[in-house]
Simulated assay, not measured.
Amino acid sequence: MSRSYGQYCGLAKTLDVVGDRWNLLIVRQLLVAPARYRELQDGLPGIATNLLADRLRDLETGGVVERRLAGEGNAIEYVLTPWGAELREPIEGLIRWSTPLMTSGPGNDRFRPEWLVVALPALLSGRGSATVGIAVDGQMLQVCGAEVSPHDGRDLEAIVRADAAVVLGLAAGALTLDGARGLVEIEGDEAAVRTVFDR
């Protein structure tokens, strides 16, 4: 954190800590789950290993990230500090703000299904309490109220199968289930799916 805007302003001070390129994406990955260095690198396509090391060091110095021993052996994993985890709310605000930028679909951009674990709660806030599975790119997530996580084996009222862009469109309200016929496959209780995706 050698660079500073040198301004006594909350936004400037925040950007001093998390404003460098890749920092908020590292936080996004750690909002999904604590991760080892290699897992972070895999979850951040395009980041150079030396840049990741620098950014983790900066975030650690800034009090956003900390290292801890993983469950087994001497492996180190990175985790958000309680203060760092408070970035969830502003990140969710930025995700909601990004909705017009997402309407064109992914194009050539990379996508990883676990990123939906952070995006969907931001977009589905205040929707129904049904437990619905979302199958994207061979991975199953579960939505239960405002919580989204990898499927933990619990019974699901329904499963939605669709491309990531369609799921994001449904969550953001840019698409409706009726308008997405042919793009969405629903297995199980369609009414449960509607409590999640219909506005």
Rank of each mutant, 00 (worst) to 15 (best):
S2A: 08
Q7S: 06
Y8N: 08
C9D: 12
K13D: 05
D16S: 00
V17G: 08
G19T: 07
G19I: 13
G19Q: 05
D20Q: 13
L25C: 07
R28F: 02
Q29P: 07
A33Q: 10
R38F: 09
R38P: 00
E39Y: 03
L40V: 03
L44I: 03
P45M: 05
I47Q: 00
A48K: 15
D54G: 04
R55W: 13
E66T: 10
E66P: 03
R68T: 03
A70I: 07
G71K: 14
E72S: 11
T81A: 12
P82S: 13
W83A: 14
E86T: 15
R88G: 03
R88M: 02
E89C: 02
E89D: 08
R96W: 00
R96D: 00
P100D: 12
M102T: 05
T103Q: 04
G105D: 12
N108C: 14
D109Q: 09
F111S: 00
E114M: 11
A119S: 09
A122D: 02
A122P: 10
L124P: 01
R127T: 02
S129E: 12
A130W: 08
A130Q: 07
T131N: 15
T131E: 01
G133Y: 07
I134G: 03
I134W: 00
A135T: 14
V136N: 04
G138I: 10
E147D: 14
E147F: 08
E147L: 02
S149L: 13
H151K: 00
D152Q: 09
A165G: 09
L168N: 04
A171Q: 02
A174R: 10
D178P: 01
R181W: 07
L183T: 05
V184N: 07
I186K: 06
E187L: 10
E187N: 05
G188N: 04
G188T: 09
D189V: 05
E190R: 05
